[in-house]
């Protein structure tokens, strides 16, 4: 089970790999679309890579609810515990 900090830093690595954004820019309150400028295609790639990294499933219909980095961290954390 990963802590929220570990999930966030793992997510930051995935975002960096996909978009080149510095990992430290991937902060909890940042919006994927408005702040990080991540389009839907990149978002789906990030989601699939996060599923593999954290051993969870993020259904397509949930992805639109993951507006901020914090939303994604919480979702992954809950999914790991569930």
């Amino acid at each position: 089970m990963a802590s929220n900090e570990e999930i966030q830093s793992g997510l930051a690595e995935i975002v960096n790999e996909e978009t080149g954004l510095a990992p430290e820019a991937v902060e909890a309150d940042k919006s994927f679309t408005d702040d990080l400028d991540i389009d839907s295609i990149s978002m789906m790639t990030i989601v699939v890579n996060a599923e593999e990294k954290f051993g969870v499933r993020i259904p397509d219909e949930e992805v639109k609810n993951l507006k901020t980095v914090g939303d994604a961290v919480n979702y992954i954390s809950n999914a790991q515990q569930g």
Partner: peptide
Amino acid sequence: GPRRVLPM
């Protein structure tokens, strides 16, 4: 599997 076929 299909989930890993990337959207790009």
